[in-house]
Design a protein around this nucleic acid. Structure first.
Lengths: 146, 146
DNA sequence: CCGTATCCTCCCCGATACTG
DNA sequence: CAGTATCGGGGAGGATACGG
């Protein structure tokens, strides 16, 4: 995440106040914003949502995730899992066996994040064609105009 | 956005099928995924959500957005607005006056995106302290371990 | 006022190779 | 099997200057 601008978006401020955050000076949202951003960043990540989706079906080991998510590299899987673990969204349990076995699972917190995210996915699916149409028209106008 | 992996995430597939997308061969989600990603990308953008939030209070002109969103550059504002306009989330109306006046507003489609996004923001605000605690504990363990 | 064009920097992330 | 270490290309995005 990058450095955070202190912004005063009405809707966010309203939400912030509803959650009992101090609204003095108009910088109410500012403090909360950095935390909000980190969540939105995660949703925007190329892989995080896919990982959470994978784990929604139950615990998975590292390699299962690696092969289940097409195109992800070991490195990125590790980094993403660490992030999710750090935020408490995913748990990591190491079994002391040979060969090593590590299971990843959604935490309760992680499970509560899923519905809002899926609502977004749902919206996207519902408006797929509408968006595509808009884009096509926009691009057509752009190229015809020059 | 980057090239899309064909992934078979159960939850997403389920949603895709609910929306009547062909589920043959297990690549059901794959086709829809690129559109889904573009939406998720927008949510993950540094500025898009803030812009949408700004416009939720009614139309705004370019400069109002520029000054209302702290830290954004002219360039990024323009780029983001073009993207949102291209997707049909935001409308751009030019008034033929001097000095030039351009108003940006949420479209109906854009307005329907707001609730899911705000649900996410709401989740983030609700779990701010929990997440922060997790992070602190994780970092503490990490540094103590080495 | 509302952009576009250009430059330039930083950091994300993929590829690859190596360890316990 | 489940990671870490290191390198390098490329894109995102800020600063600045200029145009309609």
């Amino acid at each position: 995440m990058t450095t955070m601008p202190t912004t005063d978006v009405p809707v966010v401020r309203e939400l912030a106040e509803r959650h009992g955050l101090p609204a003095e000076g108009g910088c109410a949202a500012a403090e909360a914003t950095s935390e909000v951003r980190s969540v939105l960043d995660r949703v925007g990540d190329k892989w995080s949502v896919l990982i959470l989706g994978m784990l929604s079906g139950g615990p998975q080991r590292f390699t299962e995730l690696l092969h289940g998510i097409d195109g992800i590299s070991q490195r990125m899987l590790t980094l993403n899992l660490r992030q999710l673990e750090r935020d408490g969204l995913v748990s990591r349990t190491v079994h002391a066996v040979v060969p090593p076995r590590v299971d990843y699972a959604l935490t309760d917190l992680g499970a509560t994040l899923l519905p809002p995210v899926l609502a977004l996915v749902d919206w996207a699916l519902e408006n797929t064609t509408t968006i595509r149409d808009h884009r096509d028209q926009f691009d057509a106008r752009a190229t015809s105009a020059g």
